[in-house]
Amino acid sequence: MQIVPKFGLSAAWQGLIGASALIGMLFGGVVFGFLTDRFGRQAMYTVDLLLIIATSVAQYFIEGALALFVLRLLTGIAVGADYPIATSLLAEFMPRRYRGPMLGAMIAVWFLGATVAYLVGIALQALGSVFK
């Protein structure tokens, strides 16, 4: 974690911050699943995407470990909500003939996106040392 020296994070904080998005994903699917049934898929999908954007951008401005933990937890909740909402929206509006292949492709793209995000992080870390 590149932020460890900046904030002087203990091992406990490193673990909490590292696990916060996964913890959030656990709750996001459950909570947003209920809310999606109540308020509709399209409305909750919009809320979900706005929450992902807002919490991701807000992480740039944090000043401490607690704020980072909370924002990553909220991002995880939104990502956890995205899985069931997006798949149900796709299944609802996709013609039956393409539904299976598109759902499979969507799940594969989620994993591809996670891999690309990791690689972008490595590239940004390398670029950071160039600009110091």
Rank of each mutant, 00 (worst) to 15 (best):
M1L: 09
M1Y: 08
M1V: 06
Q2C: 10
Q2F: 05
V4D: 13
F7A: 04
G8E: 14
G8S: 13
L9D: 10
A12H: 09
A12L: 13
W13P: 00
Q14S: 02
G15M: 02
L16C: 14
I17A: 01
G18I: 14
G18C: 12
S20D: 14
A21L: 14
L22T: 11
I23M: 15
F27C: 07
F27N: 03
G28C: 05
V30L: 05
V30A: 04
V31H: 07
V31Y: 10
F32I: 13
F32N: 13
F32M: 14
F32L: 15
G33W: 00
G33S: 00
L35H: 13
T36L: 03
D37I: 02
G40C: 01
A43W: 04
M44Y: 00
Y45T: 10
T46N: 08
T46K: 10
T46Y: 08
T46A: 11
V47W: 08
D48C: 11
L49R: 11
L50A: 12
L51V: 10
I52M: 15
I53L: 05
I53S: 02
A54T: 08
A54C: 09
A54V: 11
V57Q: 00
V57N: 00
V57R: 00
V57W: 02
Y60G: 15
F61D: 01
E63P: 07
E63G: 11
L66E: 12
V70F: 06
V70L: 09
L71K: 11
R72N: 07
R72V: 06
L73R: 04
L73F: 08
L74I: 04
I77K: 02
A78F: 10
V79L: 11
G80C: 04
A81W: 10
A81T: 07
A81Q: 07
D82R: 07
Y83G: 03
Y83E: 04
Y83D: 03
P84S: 15
P84I: 13
P84W: 15
I85R: 00
S88P: 05
S88Q: 12
L89R: 05
L90N: 02
E92R: 00
F93Q: 06
M94C: 14
P95W: 00
P95S: 00
R96P: 03
R97P: 01
R97W: 03
Y98A: 14
G100A: 11
M102D: 03
G104A: 06
M106H: 06
I107G: 00
I107E: 00
A108M: 02
V109D: 14
V109L: 15
V109A: 15
F111I: 04
G113W: 09
T115G: 07
Y118P: 03
V120R: 05
G121Q: 08
I122Y: 14
A123F: 08
L124D: 08
A126V: 03
L127N: 09
L127Y: 12
V130L: 15
F131K: 05
K132S: 07
K132H: 09
